[in-house]
């Protein structure tokens, strides 16, 4: 376990460092320039801006300076948000995405896993067919369709929630539901597949031959193995879902992190692209580490090395 932790930590450092380096050079490879504006700016102003962001220096020098500041825990200033620090942008917007993402995940698991289990147990019946049709619908309906539908029903018609914005304590509900339903559909299908595979194993027949009641066969004998694919999927999904979604944040007008991923890249905000990407990579590595531990706990054949 200790060896596993140490080796995964070393791997994590390599991965994050690689992401950092790749991102750093790739944003600079893209055509365009963060300081380009429609209005002409005075050469002196431009020079002082370039100086402020080290854009006057050579690429290796810029890289070394950025790396040094990251080691000091400084994510640098944003190139497009005037006078804002990247760390501040992230700490302002991430909690919004984190709240919505975690709630969406809870909704997704609470709907998806029971639906998948029931579909697998009642396979090829109307219960299974209707659950899987719903799941297919959930997968096929994109967020930009589901979102407005929920807004029209619960925001405008029933007036239970605000149609958008981030002001009241209940403002997470609709965006979380939109994301949650989509993820629930994936989880339901994965759960069904995993459970079906386990329920067809010989050891389930053994359990029946021992006189184990059907419900206990599902909960005691099948669920642990059947959920392994779901857990393996949920780990990486967790990183994506808690860092916000551009579409959801646009539909619900939320000050989340997801829009920064897209806008920073569009605006050529070199430093903010780097900061958000490194944050995502770190989160992903971290979450994968815990997923592996969880899978090893679920499956006794897996050894952590």
């Amino acid at each position: 376990m200790l060896r596993f932790t140490v080796s995964r930590l070393l791997q994590a450092i390599v991965v994050v460092f690689a992401v950092f380096t790749l991102t750093f050079f790739m944003v600079r490879l893209a055509p365009g320039d963060p300081l380009a504006t429609e209005k002409a700016i005075h050469p002196d102003v431009k020079r002082s801006l370039q100086e402020r962001y080290h854009l006057d220096k050579s690429l290796p020098e810029q890289y070394a300076l950025t790396l040094k500041s990251y080691f000091a825990g400084d994510l640098g200033p944003s190139m497009k948000h005037q006078g804002m620090w990247n760390a501040k942008i992230i700490s302002d917007s991430w909690p919004v995405s984190l709240t919505i993402g975690l709630m969406a995940l809870i909704i997704a698991v609470a709907i998806g896993i029971p639906a998948g289990v029931i579909a697998a147990v009642r396979r090829n019946t109307w219960v299974d067919n209707s659950a899987m049709s719903m799941a297919l619908l959930g997968i096929c309906l994109p967020g930009f369709v589901m979102g407005p539908l929920l807004i029209a029903l619960f925001g405008i018609k029933l007036r239970w929630f605000n149609v958008g914005g981030w002001y009241e304590a209940t403002d997470w509900v609709l965006p979380a539901a939109t994301m949650g339903i989509i993820y629930a559909a994936y989880i339901a299908r994965l759960t069904r597949g995993g459970m079906l595979e386990i329920l067809n194993q010989d050891f389930i027949r053994t359990a029946r031959a021992k006189g184990v009641p059907e419900l206990k066969i599902v909960t005691h004998h099948a669920l642990r193995g059947g959920l392994i694919p779901v857990v393996a999927y949920l780990g990486p999904a967790l990183a994506g879902i808690t860092t916000g979604s551009f579409i959801i944040e646009t539909i619900y007008n939320l000050p989340g992190l997801g829009s920064h991923f897209v806008n920073a890249a569009v605006n050529k905000d070199y430093t903010l692209v780097l900061a958000t990407t490194v944050l995502f990579a770190t989160l992903l590595v971290f979450v994968n580490f815990f997923t592996d531990i969880l899978v090893a706990w679920l499956n006794p054949k897996v050894r952590l090395t």
């Binding site: 010989d202 050891f203 053994t206 005691h220 004998h221 499956n299």
Partner: peptide, 12 residues
């Protein structure tokens, strides 16, 4: 049963 490799639950 026939196959003792698969007839016991690997998760228990």
């Amino acid at each position: 049963f026939q196959d003792p490799m698969t007839s016991l639950n690997p998760y228990m």
